[in-house]
């Protein structure tokens, strides 16, 4: 029996992760529910005046998306670490670089992608101008992929720790900040009638950089966590 080629292996891994996620639909729903609830907190805290809400909407939606991504990224490697399949993965002949990308891809498909797709609903609830909806979805699509990659680095470093939950936020929130800046700036630009393209282009550039570099850090982090 020969080992499958790296690309094929990566796809199988992605399918496995997605299958595991689909078997537990509640786990997929949780981040979305969290997103909805936090969005509902803002009118309660800031007051229901439509003007105020519309002014804050881009930031609120982006911060909420960021937080729900943060809360789920802790679990990316956790269950596989606990049942030992992560250790098997490290021993596999296929490059770890691609394997972790499969994990992150599955994470993004089950959180970021869905968040981006449902975000227009919440945007309308917060009175965001309809002209900005396209920019919101686009920026969230690119941005959450970036957040998943960065979150994966934090997850790989803390997966071996029992109390990793709070720590991972401390590690990766500073790294999330550039994404937040350009993501909400894209929406803000669209609200005021300016082209959002440049911001999306920068987010795309950061995504390319993250795809190239983050798996290296994740692979190193996983090796350290397994050794510890």
């Amino acid at each position: 029996m020969t080992a499958p080629a790296a690309g094929q292996f990566c796809l199988r891994l992605l399918r496995r992760q997605l299958l595991l996620a689909v078997r537990r639909p509640v786990e997929i729903g949780n981040p979305l529910l969290f997103f909805a609830m936090v969005v509902a907190l803002f009118p309660l805290g800031l007051g229901p005046a439509p003007g105020t809400l519309a002014g804050f909407a881009s930031g609120v939606l982006w911060i909420t998306a960021l937080l729900s991504n943060l809360l789920t990224s802790d679990a990316v490697f956790r269950s596989d670490f606990e049942d030992g399949s992560l250790e098997q993965l490290l021993l596999a002949p296929q490059p770890l670089f691609l394997s972790v990308l499969a994990y992150i891809g599955a994470h993004w498909l089950t959180t970021g992608l869905l968040l981006a797709l449902v975000s227009p609903v919440f945007a309308l609830m917060l009175n965001l101008s309809t002209a900005a909806l396209g920019a919101l979805v686009a920026s969230l699509l690119i941005g959450t992929a970036l957040l998943s990659l960065i979150g994966g680095i934090g997850a790989s470093l803390t997966v071996g720790l029992k109390r990793g939950g709070m720590l991972i936020s401390l590690l990766i929130l500073p790294l999330y900040m550039p994404v937040l800046i350009f993501g909400s700036a894209a929406v803000q630009a669209a609200v005021s009638g300016l082209p959002a393209g440049p911001y999306l282009a920068i987010l795309g550039a950061m995504l390319c950089l993250a795809i190239a570099l983050a798996p290296l850090a994740m692979a190193a982090g996983l090796r350290i966590s397994i050794d510890a």
Partner: peptide, 12 residues
């Protein structure tokens, strides 16, 4: 392991 993890984090 702590210092290795910190090394990765500080490089990131």
């Amino acid at each position: 392991a702590a210092s290795k993890a910190c090394a990765v984090l500080s490089l990131v």
